[in-house]
Design a protein around this nucleic acid. Structure first.
Length: 253
DNA sequence: CGCGTTTGACCCGCGC
DNA sequence: GCGCGGGTCAAACGCG
């Protein structure tokens, strides 16, 4: 559900031929239809024109926000690559801290300098699903541990890939402190086998680490990351809800 | 009975 | 060197 909303939102923000951009055309149609209409309708169309202007402004703002986020992403990515090339001899935990800090902001897919590839993925869950830490990602996992960590009241579950005995991939799953509807899954390593199950409708929450070099999937993952960040911003949520409400009203007229 | 999950104990790296 | 905390192990347990 939330992903559907976000898809719409990203569409509105990223695509220059968005529905919002088409709104002036629809508004012209309304004005055209009311050629000899009374002053009431003129006032209404005037109001609509103002609304369209306001929405266009919001749309521009949203695009700016996304563009800033993308810039930040690129900066962090560069910093991370620098860290990889300079601190090759750092001890295990330190390296993990660096990678996890970077990954909390972005998911670095092509960290070729990092032997144990770490990938953080945010999953939105249904309200009724709040008791489980199950994340359908197309692989089979065996839980081998659970722990309460210091910085998060929710338990962290540890999983190993159970499909292939030799598969080194592990994942940690923990509810986000900020938003309990978000499950943060941290993947470590690369699968040495293909996906096990591909259930219909799970596409938006699926991460294919084994094929991470594919650019379109990386872009999709990046968008997912950005979307997750955006949904945690109450201002963004409010603006998005308002924009969608207005859009729905206009298209149904 | 076999398999997956739970959970307390243990290990080990890091910071002081 | 010691304590803390995250990660892993493995015995106990539950379910089909």
């Amino acid at each position: 559900m939330e992903f559907t909303l976000l898809d719409t939102c990203l569409d509105l923000s990223l695509n220059s031929t968005t529905s919002l951009d088409e709104l002036p055309i629809k508004q012209q149609e309304v004005i055209g239809l009311g050629g000899g209409i009374p002053s009431n309708d003129e006032a209404a169309s005037d109001h609509l024109a103002k609304e369209v202007k306001r929405l266009s402004g919001e749309n521009t703002k949203l695009r700016e926000v996304l563009s800033v986020m993308y810039d930040n992403y690129n900066t962090l990515r560069k910093q991370y690559m620098n860290n990889c090339s300079t601190s090759g001899t750092s001890r295990k935990r330190k390296a993990e801290k660096i990678t996890s800090r970077v990954n909390s902001e972005l998911s670095d897919e092509d960290s070729s300098c990092n032997k144990s590839r770490v990938l953080v993925h945010h999953h939105h869950i249904q309200r009724s699903d709040h008791t489980t830490l199950l994340v359908k990602d197309g692989y089979e996992w065996r839980k081998y541990g659970q722990k309460i960590t210091r910085d998060n009241p929710y338990p962290r579950a540890y999983f190993k890939c159970s499909f292939a005995p030799t598969c080194p991939v592990k994942k940690k799953v923990q509810r986000s402190v900020d938003d309990k509807s978000i499950i943060v899954a941290t993947y470590e390593g690369q699968h040495n086998h293909s996906k096990v199950v591909l259930e219909a409708g799970e596409g938006s929450s699926t991460t294919t680490i084994g094929h991470s070099h594919k650019q379109p999937e990386f872009n999709k993952l990046l968008i997912d990351q950005m979307a997750s960040s955006l949904t945690r911003d109450p201002k963004f949520k409010a603006a998005l809800a308002a924009a969608l409400r207005e859009k729905t009203i206009l298209t149904h007229k």
